[in-house]
């Protein structure tokens, strides 16, 4: 029975990884691509790792699997946040389907301020 569960988890996990890769290729701009990369990638890898834990069925392996999942879940959004900021600040064009951008006003305000180009700021 556990083989079936592990097999299904592995299938679904690798499927989500594939969707993440496909999303990176197909979606229109950097920020939407990151949606696919962080969410589908994290979920896919997580399911695959749980599948491994179910397959081995040992306490030590389960703990290791949980450690890997915790690391991925902790680091993925941090990296995503930084890339998102970098891509927005570098002025990568958003896709033409984007219909509202409330960050633009704040960003302009920040750039207009005196401190923005002070040497200490970077």
């Amino acid at each position: 029975m556990s083989e079936y569960i592990a097999g299904i988890l592995i299938w679904v996990g690798s499927g989500f990884c594939f969707v993440a890769a496909l999303g990176i290729v197909r979606l229109p701009d950097t920020l939407t691509r990151m949606h696919a990369a962080t969410k589908a990638g994290t979920l896919g890898a997580g399911l695959l790792i749980i599948g491994g834990a179910v397959f081995f069925q040992e306490l030590l392996v389960t703990l290791r699997a949980l450690t890997i999942i915790a690391l991925v879940v902790l680091t993925a959004p941090v990296a995503a946040h930084l890339i998102g900021r970098a891509s927005y600040e570098s002025g990568v064009p958003l896709s033409d389907r984007t219909w509202i951008d409330e960050l633009e006003a704040y960003e302009n305000e920040k750039r207009a301020s005196e401190q923005y180009c002070q040497p200490g700021e970077w």
Binding site: A21, I24, T30, R33, M34, A37, G41, A79, I83, S87
Partner: peptide, 11 residues
């Protein structure tokens, strides 16, 4: 863009 490449590398 460079940001796209970083996203790809992250994934």
């Amino acid at each position: 863009s460079a940001a796209d490449r970083v996203v790809a590398m992250d994934l």
